[in-house]
């Protein structure tokens, strides 16, 4: 029972939403693009969309800073 987040294997948590996953991974940067199995999750749906078991999640942090 695991998922891949940015190519790293992490435990899968039942009913975990994108928002929960970002919190668990401590990804606090606001400018991120999230894809589950290559499909973009709209930012407005982060609290609703659940992460399926065995999925590949990409949390793409945009480049930022001065």
């Amino acid at each position: 029972m695991s998922i891949e987040v940015n190519s790293k294997v992490v435990d899968w948590v039942e009913n975990e939403t994108v928002k929960d996953l970002l919190k668990r991974m401590r990804y606090t940067f606001p400018l991120v693009v999230v894809k589950i199995n290559d499909k973009v999750v709209p930012r407005k749906d982060f609290s609703e969309v659940k992460i399926p078991d065995n999925s590949k999640v990409a949390v793409i942090h945009m480049i930022s800073g001065g």
Binding site: N6, K8, Y27, F29, H61, S64
Partner: peptide, 29 residues
């Protein structure tokens, strides 16, 4: 850091894993 700021792309996104990938980013950005 005004040539390239690649920490997230490299360390967090794992989007440029090979030397070639990193070199491309250190050209493009």
């Amino acid at each position: 850091h005004d040539e390239a700021w690649l920490i997230f792309m490299d360390m967090v996104n794992n989007a440029i894993p090979t030397f070639k990938d990193k070199a491309e980013a250190l050209h493009y950005f």
